[in-house]
Design a binder for these strands. Structure first.
Lengths: 234, 234
DNA sequence: CATCAAACTTGACGCCGTCAAGATAACGCA
DNA sequence: TGCGTTATCTTGACGGCGTCAAGTTTGATG
């Protein structure tokens, strides 16, 4: 994780871009998104405050890189979870929802940067690609759970192309539950509930258990409803 | 909304506390939580940067006051929505969920301050009371939808006291859907979907329509499940 | 009217992000 | 090999930020 400074002989760093990203992740992990500072990251990378400008443009550029990393990590963890569920006979949709929460809990600072919209370069190509892929996985698994066909380009299709999709409600429903629970947990909304015996683990168990049951039941019910009366949608 | 400066004769302001809150709300509305600054608020209130310290302690104190206002507003809007639903025969639970979203959309900056945990005085008595009341309404309506009894002190009970509650899963489920959709919308996660014809209104309609149907169905299903096999919970 | 506490200002401190100008090092090409 | 070009990094400065200590003004209280 550290990149260890390949060869920091003198004036030139070697790989400042990666060093800054590593430093940023460390700062986010230690102080959270509140105590995040460009100068602090530069300090940790052993470089002057103005150095990162050439690599990231400005603070927003660095945050955008972090967010991209966050989306890619999310995609990877969800895919891994899907594979594991497939092998063990578990539910794929529940697996990605649990992976989503796990990613948020593992790196809440990065998660907030990715989803908090502190101000990111929204036209950044890498960020867009990473976000689309993560969204695509969600779409794919939801449609799969509904027993519907999925296009071969799910992981690259623009989210806007789902505006009129028949399954949009289910997709948003699944995403809302997952994202809502994740953000409430890392933002401390559920802190009072975590103080009780069992703490956070108890809440996570509830999420992976009853909440997932409810979620899957809702999606399945919606699927049969769709079959019974497809006209009531849109 | 303006408080109009009661009598700003000279050195003393008159009601700086309220003036600061008004200014803060205005700044949040104009520039969002990103461009929010204590100095800017003080400037608008026509006062030196150090003046607010005596009323709020520091920036966190001001944000805490804003958050308290946000929670109180949320409670009020939810109660109003409940009353309206009761009168019109609509669903009460769906009503508070829609009110929740409406509040977030009406004042996204304030909503983010209340729920974003930028750093609030979590031990503040007023904040705690306001948050507990809002949570209590959610608990009450969820239990009502489940057909369960509600205690007379729902609006003042500590959230931690629900840690072992049989309905906690349903409560968290409802809250997760609502909070998740609301935050995703105001944080721009659904921006690509808003660009299509119909825009944001179409998404909101979907939320009030199909998503609420799914939510209510999930809660009702969970209720009958509870009756059929109460031992499978906890 | 004298006193005193609360409310507000002033000035300063260290931090922040960013920019312009200069120093340095790596790289391509003769 | 040597030289120029270009990317990289430093330095120094700017304005803005939150906050603190010290001083000033005001309204209230006796």
């Amino acid at each position: 994780m550290d990149t260890k400074v390949s060869k920091r002989g003198g004036y030139h760093h070697g790989d400042l871009r990666q060093a800054m990203i590593d430093a940023a992740e460390a700062v986010l992990a230690e102080k959270g998104v509140g105590g995040f500072t460009l100068r602090e990251c530069a300090r940790r990378a052993g470089v002057s405050p103005a150095a990162p400008a050439h690599h990231f443009g400005n603070l927003v550029g660095l945050l955008t890189a972090i967010a991209t990393l966050g989306f890619d990590d999310l995609s990877q963890e969800m895919e891994t979870a899907v594979a594991k569920a497939q092998a063990s006979g578990g539910d794929r949709l529940a697996a990605i929802c649990e992976a989503y929460l796990a990613v948020a809990l593992a790196r809440p600072g990065r998660f907030r940067v990715a989803f908090g919209r502190l101000g990111l370069k929204n036209n950044d190509e890498e960020l867009r690609r990473a976000a689309i892929r993560a969204f695509g996985i969600l779409v794919r698994e939801t449609k799969l759970a509904l027993g519907h066909e999925i296009d071969s380009d799910v992981l690259t299709r623009l989210p806007s192309s789902y505006a009129g999709d028949l399954d949009l409600a289910e997709i948003l429903f699944v995403w809302s539950v997952t994202h809502g629970f994740s953000t409430m947990l890392i933002d401390g909304q559920l802190a009072p509930l975590e103080m009780q015996p069992g703490g956070r683990g108890r809440l996570i168990a509830l999420y992976s258990g009853r909440l997932m049951e409810m979620l899957l039941a809702a999606v399945r019910a919606s699927a049969s409803l769709t079959l019974a009366n497809p006209a009531s949608h849109g």
